[in-house]
């Protein structure tokens, strides 16, 4: 059982968290978004083998945050509140 560090609640069991996708996968906006741009946002994933920057939600407090971790050995390197710039 992994322990994820919620920046607001501290370390909590993995079962309290929900994976929210790649960090930095920004939503294309506007009326001229092409089908492939939109599909890339919706579907394409970095899915890196190794270091990964991700957005997670701590379901019990409802907060989104960024977590950097390793997808091979499952170590967590850091977690942080989302910056305003990501909004």
């Amino acid at each position: 059982m992994q322990l994820f560090p919620c920046p607001f609640c501290g370390p909590r069991s993995e079962s309290e968290f929900h994976f929210g996708g790649d960090f930095g996968n920004l939503r294309p906006e506007g009326s001229d978004v092409s089908a492939s741009e939109w599909s890339a946002y919706l579907h394409l994933r970095a899915n890196p083998k190794g270091s990964s920057s991700e957005v997670w939600m701590h379901m019990t407090c409802g907060e989104l945050f960024r977590m950097d971790r390793n997808t091979v050995d499952n170590t967590v390197n850091s977690s942080a509140e989302l910056e305003d710039t990501h909004r």
């Binding site: 929210g20 939600m57 409802g62 907060e63 989104l64 989302l82 990501h86 909004r87």
Partner: peptide, 8 residues
């Protein structure tokens, strides 16, 4: 919550 935090 997700959209609130993401863009509001």
């Amino acid at each position: 919550e997700e959209w609130r935090q993401d863009r509001f």
